[in-house]
C-alpha cells in the first residue's frame, strides 16, 4: 500500500477507477478457475506433472476439486471410450454454470491413434460435450497445457455477462450483414 499512499488523489474520495463491471467480474472468474480432479489415461500423468513442482498449475489460480458441483472447468485428459463417454456426459451435466471444457491430447480431440482401427473410441469428445479449448499432442507437454489454460482465460475475459442474448443477437446480425455484403 506504500505505493498508493504516494499517489495523488485529485477527487478526495480515495481513488477512482473507471471501467466495466463485466471486466472486473471476468477478471475474477478467469483468475480463479477450479478444475475437476479427473484423469482418464496417459495425459493424466502429464496433467499430474503439471500440478507438481516444475510447472505449478496453482499459479493460474487453479485448485483441484473432487466434486463436479464445485468445479468451473473440466480437463478431458485421455482416451474417451464409449463406456466412459456416458459418465463424462453425466459429470459435465453435474457441473454448475458457467462451465468450460479443455480437451487434452489427440485421443479426446479426435480419437488419436485409435481413430482408424479402434472399435471402442469416441472420435472426439466434442461429440458429446461442447469443448472450449483443444490442446494437441500425444500426450501434450505441460507447457502446451499451460498455453491452453491461457487461451481459456482469454476466452473467459471476452465473455459477455449482461444482456447476453441481446448482444449475441446483435453480433449475429452484424455477421449476417458482413456475409450478405
Amino acid at each position: 500500500m506504500g505505493l498508493l499512499n504516494k499517489l495523488d488523489d485529485p477527487y478526495y474520495g480515495g481513488g477512482i477507477i473507471l471501467g466495466k463491471v463485466e471486466d472486473i467480474l471476468n477478471w475474477g472468474r478467469s483468475k480463479s478457475d477450479w478444475y475437476l480432479q479427473f484423469g482418464l489415461a496417459c495425459c493424466a500423468i502429464e496433467f499430474m506433472a503439471m500440478n507438481a513442482s516444475h510447472f505449478d498449475f496453482m499459479r493460474f489460480g487453479c485448485i483441484p476439486r473432487t466434486s463436479p458441483r464445485q468445479a468451473d472447468f473440466i480437463i478431458i485428459s485421455g482416451t474417451v471410450t464409449f463406456k466412459m463417454a456416458e459418465r463424462i456426459k453425466k459429470l459435465y451435466e453435474q457441473m454448475a454454470e458457467p462451465k468450460y471444457v479443455i480437451s487434452m491430447g489427440s485421443c479426446s480431440n479426435s480419437g488419436g491413434p485409435y481413430w482408424e482401427h479402434g472399435y471402442h473410441v469416441l472420435k472426439g469428445v466434442d461429440r458429446i460435450i461442447p469443448v472450449d479449448v483443444y490442446v494437441p499432442g500425444c500426450p501434450p507437454r505441460p507447457e502446451a497445457l499451460e498455453e491452453g489454460m491461457i487461451r481459456l482465460q482469454e476466452k473467459i475475459n471476452q465473455q459477455a455477462i449482461f444482456n447476453k442474448r441481446k448482444r449475441i443477437a446483435e453480433e449475429d446480425k452484424q455477421k449476417e450483414l458482413i456475409i450478405n455484403n
Binding site: T81, Y114, G118, Y119
Partner: peptide, 22 residues
C-alpha cells in the same frame, strides 16, 4: 473396461514396428 483400447485388435492391423507405440 473404462479404458479398453483394443491393443490386440491393433496388433492384427499394424506392422511390427507400428505396434511399438501402442
Amino acid at each position: 473396461g473404462y479404458l479398453h483400447r483394443c491393443f490386440e485388435k491393433h496388433c492384427e492391423k499394424m506392422t511390427y514396428p507400428q505396434v511399438i507405440p501402442y
